[in-house]
Design a protein around this nucleic acid. Structure first.
Lengths: 332, 332
DNA sequence: GTCCTTATACTCAGATTCAGCATAACTGGC
DNA sequence: GCCAGTTATGCTGAATCTGAGTATAAGGAC
């Protein structure tokens, strides 16, 4: 594989970052790579950080950004991506630490891809890792994570006392409660990015310490597994977007086999949204939205009564204004 | 103003395109520029096309993409942008026709900005133009636009007969009906981009004819006012996104004066979404969502009973999971 | 068979939405 | 001052949707 850098030998590079998500064993996973090919500039002998798969754009050859992404993902991991959507373009200066050493400015166009998990192959030690390893406060399926009560809430409480009030934000104390669902405030599964950014501001993620210009971080406990560069921010963006999207577009079916039981579908949505759903209501909503149709075949290994196998009705994709799985019946 | 090109003298440029939207006189408008500074490469003596304001990124100086955008918008138009959000990054090859003549590959990060309309100042003849000049089929406030029945529907009908079936799409006839709300299908205000792309595929917008690789376009009647490059596609993306967003985030208040009547607010939402709303229900929804609070002052020049002036309750921005104006009571 | 487990059908109360009707408060014409 | 016209605002009843169950079905292990 030639090292075709999207670089033009000067001071600007466009990169394509991929958040490739799958769910197995009710764990939402993301494909990450580790190792030197991302020159992560860890000063001391720190172990190399996990990174999202990354590929350059070749302005001369790549016809579209998305096609370029599909191309190098296939090359590097052997994965043939199905559903792909553009997420966001990240371009802050110094988001790649190498820029400080005179490296080129790197603008990354991030994409979100959904696949049914398969084993990737290829160089760079790619592997599937739980998204909740990186964002452990996001999984509320077993109730509020202990991490929040034991670590995050106290640390944010201390931070909010000394935090300067910011224009456009309510007072920091209230902001913490609302963002993390404390003090009776409801938990909003979609505010993933807001939560990550609050933790970053409060110095509670390792990445915050890397930024020299960060105002006196309180150096509280570091939560979650860190990633290279701003990749954890990108991951948070992706999870938030995905959680929002499943409510109004039927994207989750991309992550399932052609036929599935309704409980499989429900567990998938729960894994991604991080909350539990009411079974009977979930079934009702999915069925009467016309998203699925029964096949007449049955899954027998349920541990109980056999479950009918359903398939996704692809027709609805272009049929109704806004179907989507919805989150019917979030249990509180 | 120095001609600081974001270009690095080589084969790749990052540009920032701005869709700056405002509403006056119940007409949603977009700020456009015309003229030679966009070297639109019109071969013959065609009049120069309207374009979105565009500025380069200086990789050495600009700290963030958004700040760069705010900077040159202020320089070029005198506008101080309030609400700004990143829209999408456009990077197809040849989206800038100058690329064919050996020009650099231009990747554009498009932003959506909302302002209360003011007169811009600056070079390049900027001006506010109705968004529905460019996308006239999107305004259903007076019922289905005659343009659809008289021109678009017949032309798309002819096209759909000869169109090749595409994988993942239902048959072309059905796709046309669903996308444009024909044959009893509901009109979905948010599918702006889908509609533009369908018209493009069918050769019903002028831009389609510019692409040499477009498969035999049917050369039907050209609808809507064309724009430079792929700017009309960007505008369609922006309008679709905005229509979706007002349903779940209270962004429209950025486009209003500090105090306003509920009818002003309703007319604004109607102008953007392109449909009429049920007055009493709109009022009820907005009020009980806690989005506004009365000021006790009244607007007398209503032509009838005076209307109370309200102000936006900024607190809700970080309060509730998902407020937003919503489209309560779309009249059918 | 009994017990355990999961699947699926059905119910019922409460909340929300839709579509109006009714009334209030102003202006302008006379 | 009264009337017609206009806009604002309050309120209601039906239809629909949602939340949280109860009840029943149908498999496996023993």
């Amino acid at each position: 594989m030639p090292d075709r850098k999207g670089n033009n030998g000067d001071d600007l590079v466009i990169g394509l970052d991929a958040v490739i998500a799958a769910v197995t064993d009710e764990v939402p996973r993301v494909l990450t790579v580790t190792g030197a090919r991302h020159e992560l500039a860890s000063s001391a002998g720190r172990s190399p950080l996990d990174a999202l798969p990354f590929g350059p754009l070749d302005p001369r050859r790549d016809v579209t950004l998305e096609r370029a992404l599909r191309g190098w993902v296939a090359e590097q991991t052997g994965l043939d991506l199905g559903y792909v959507e553009q997420l966001y373009t990240f371009g802050d200066r110094y988001r790649d630490p190498a820029e400080r050493a005179g490296g080129p400015r790197v603008i990354s166009v991030a994409y979100l891809a959904l696949v049914a998990e398969r084993s990737p192959t290829g160089p760079g030690e790619p592997g599937w890792r739980s998204i909740y390893d990186y964002l452990p406060w996001e999984d509320w399926r077993e109730g509020r994570p202990a991490l929040i009560d034991e670590t995050i809430a106290p640390a944010l409480g201390r931070w909010s006392e000394g935090a300067p009030p910011r224009p456009g934000f309510p007072d920091p104390r209230q902001r913490v409660d609302i963002t993390f669902g404390l003090e009776g405030a409801p938990w909003d599964p979609e505010r993933v990015l807001e939560r990550y950014e609050l933790l970053f501001e409060a110095g509670l993620v390792e990445e915050a310490g890397r930024h020299p210009r960060t105002p006196r971080t309180h150096r509280g406990p570091r939560t979650g597994r860190p990633m290279a560069q701003d990749h954890r921010r990108i991951l948070a963006t992706a999870l938030g977007r995905l959680r929002g999207k499943i409510r109004y577009r039927p994207v989750v079916f991309e992550m399932l086999p052609p036929t599935f039981t309704l409980l499989q579908l429900q567990r998938l949505v729960e894994a991604l949204s991080g909350v539990r759903l009411h079974k009977q209501n979930f079934r009702r909503l999915v069925e009467q939205a016309g998203l699925v149709e029964g096949t007449g075949r049955y899954e027998l290994a349920t541990g109980g009564r056999p479950a009918e196998l359903f398939r996704f009705r692809r027709e609805v994709l272009r049929e109704r204004p806004a179907p989507g799985v919805g989150l019917p019946g979030v249990l509180r």
